[in-house]
């Protein structure tokens, strides 16, 4: 299926880019490549350079944090989600692990490329940051609900 689609088409179909102007899509596509994330691999490791930003097309990726008792899964990401935001700010170091749970097709963006284009073209930068901000807020809202332990026993 995807073979028939160009990179830009794949990008356009991803919910992250909804409403984005064609010229901005083209710029973003210029930083992207299609990748297949194999189950069990770690596209992101805590502490590593945050040089890639992923837009997931399917599969599942778990955000994990390792603890002495073993790894804990914080949240899972699925089709339509994006993965990674440490690349936005210095020191560009990943804060969590990302482990592929189900093999996933994704668009992988070169982070320095994105940052460079956003810096040169603030219109593009704004369109990108607006979408990142929406990801942050909805992810934060979901995390807040998760923290409430809604189903747990309340004394």
């Amino acid at each position: 299926m995807s073979e028939a689609l160009g990179l830009e088409d794949v990008l356009r179909e991803h919910p992250f880019t909804t409403g984005m102007r064609p010229e901005h899509l083209r710029e973003l596509a210029g930083c992207a490549r299609e990748v297949l994330l194999a189950a069990g691999t770690f596209p992101i490791r805590e502490g590593d350079a945050a040089d890639t930003f992923y837009a997931l097309r399917d599969g599942a990726v778990a955000i994990e944090v390792h603890a002495p008792s073993g790894p804990l899964v914080v949240q899972t990401l699925h089709a339509g989600d994006v993965l990674g935001w440490s690349w936005l700010f210095p020191p560009y170091r990943s804060a969590f692990d990302a482990r592929v749970v189900e093999p996933a097709r994704a668009l992988a963006f070169d982070a320095p490329c994105l940052r460079g284009k956003a810096e040169r073209d603030h219109e593009l930068g704004y369109a990108l940051m607006l979408r990142m901000a929406r990801v942050f807020t909805s992810r934060l809202a979901a995390t807040r609900l998760q923290l409430l332990d809604l189903y747990g026993p309340r004394a």
């Binding site: 804990l72 949240q75 189903y151």
Partner: peptide, 23 residues
Amino acid sequence: TTVDVADRAWTGAVGVVTRLIPR
């Protein structure tokens, strides 16, 4: 299915149930 808290033995989703809606 999704759960709030899990270790790696769980193969389903982790997160609040609203995050399943798009799927």
